[in-house]
Design a protein around this nucleic acid. Structure first.
Lengths: 144, 144
DNA sequence: TATTGTTATACTCTATAACTATA
DNA sequence: TATAGTTATAGAGTATAACAATA
């Protein structure tokens, strides 16, 4: 017998993950708003930190977003001085997107607040549980 | 020192959960499709299993969905013979929704396939890790 | 001929308001 | 007057197609 008969019928993994995701997004929204950002613009900044100097198409596929919708976001971020777009010297069709110093600073500030929120969200867990959770999540989510 | 200096900079919890949720939804979609269901209709059936004989409004709030959009879903599920709506004897404005035998059977069949998919998804984890993950997820997601 | 960034268009999904019948 | 279910309408979000410049 490898089954534990004492456990209640499991909930769908999808339901559990979806609910938690929803909670986290709801918790992040006011933080982002306080820093003058929305979800996808923040995702763009975070992606550019990991891979500086991406082309717009690379950026779009990296964050799983549409290249046409990305444009308005980049326009806004550019107008706010958080990113800049330069023509790619090796391919004059492409534009290379990169963080400005202001963009990096903004990202750091937002992330600090999000870290505080996350710590509160995981408050009920032990240190070992929280570490184990992060390890498992990173593994399931895949590289990057 | 309570910090582990060897760990890389953490990714946002929201990003990790969102990616995994996305993967699970993508994995569930073809399963549901094979059984002639979509995401929200399936959620409705699952919710009705937990709380039979809900009123439409209770159902909507339970699954976090809009009561107006729920109607079309209930129409479809009713036409497919998976649920039935009867007037509430104590309040003739309300309609009580419940699973039919066919609905229960469909739900069981879909869930069995989803359980197989989930087992495969967690394949890389040890038994203890998988159990620990479910426990933590259930705790974070909250009751129900 | 194919690709990058862009714009324009159509479509879907979601939110809001309004209606009916009951309470 | 308020509420459950319903319908209709408006808005946001998303997907698709087409275009100019370059490869």
């Amino acid at each position: 017998m490898t089954e534990d008969t004492a456990t209640p019928p499991d909930r769908d993994l999808g339901e559990l993950f979806a609910r938690i995701t929803q909670q986290l997004i709801a918790a992040e929204r006011p933080i982002l708003e306080r820093h003058g950002l929305q979800m996808w613009p923040y995702v763009v900044l975070a992606s550019l930190e990991r891979r500086p100097a991406s082309t717009q198409l690379q950026l779009a596929t990296q964050i799983g977003y549409d290249k046409t919708r990305l444009i308005a976001i980049l326009d806004d971020l550019g107008a706010a001085g958080l990113i800049e777009r330069r023509p790619d010297p090796t391919d004059r069709r492409a534009r290379i997107v990169s963080l400005t110093d202001a963009g990096r600073a903004r990202l750091r500030a937002v992330r600090a607040d999000i870290r505080v929120m996350e710590a509160g969200y995981l408050e009920g867990l032990s240190e070992a549980q929280a570490r184990g959770l992060r390890r498992v999540l990173a593994r399931l989510a895949g590289p990057r």
